Amino acid sequence: MSTVRELLEEHGATYAEQAGIRLRDTPAPLYRLLVLTQLCAVRIRADTAVAAARELFAAGWRTPARMAGSTWQQRVDALGRAHYVRYDESTATALGEGADLVRERWRGDLRRLREEAGRDRAAIGRLLREVPRIGPVGADIFRREAQLVWPELRPFFDRRALAAAARLGLPETPEELAGSVPAGELARLSTALVRASLHG
């Protein structure tokens, strides 16, 4: 489908890729995706959230232990450098609390969240919503990107992506959309549809 190809070429970079996360099914990249999700889960421009994630990671806070070892003020300052304002103080708190939760409940490894959920897509979403700052939209963001490495999430297209597909004359169900790209590009297509909706 030419429309799909155009979407992928114009909007196909995932938010994880933009944030410099090489997503794999290992603890550190999955945690970085969670941090990015926490940053994206408020009413703020996605590019600003991505910049904030890059700033936090550049400061060395790439694992729950490292994030928990940073001070609240250090996190606020890092968010400020990325112009992540208005939500900087509450987000700094949420990042610290989220790091503590991941360390205490899943021993620093979100693959344990996956196993606790029985590798069930809905249950994974429910557990993600226990992380500070992550609500239904945030859970969708994480699952949209994580489908690259967690096959049980495929195909994942949230309501915004499906609405964009309908406006573009593409199939309107996840299963039909999934037939238009290889499994490895599902996250890119889902993100591209969301970006297209945001760009009108």
Results as ranks from 00 to 15, higher is better:
R160H: 13
G184R: 15
R24I: 07
I141R: 08
P136N: 13
A78T: 00
A68H: 13
T191N: 02
L186A: 07
A187L: 03
P155D: 08
V4G: 08
Y87C: 04
D47V: 14
L79Q: 02
D88E: 14
L193H: 01
V4L: 13
P155V: 04
E172V: 15
F156G: 02
V194S: 03
W150K: 05
A161H: 06
R129A: 10
E9H: 14
L101W: 08
I44F: 12
L7D: 12
S190I: 00
G200D: 11
T63K: 05
V194D: 03
R119T: 02
W106S: 09
A192S: 11
E185F: 04
R133F: 14
L79R: 00
R105W: 08
A123E: 09
R114H: 13
G169K: 00
V42G: 10
G98D: 01
E130W: 02
R107W: 10
R160E: 14
L168H: 04
R32P: 01
R45H: 14
E104P: 05
Q38T: 13
A92P: 01
Y87T: 03
T37I: 09
I124G: 00
D109L: 11
D25I: 08
A183S: 14
A165T: 04
A94Y: 14
E89H: 13
R86W: 11
D140A: 15
F142T: 08
A192V: 09
Y84R: 03
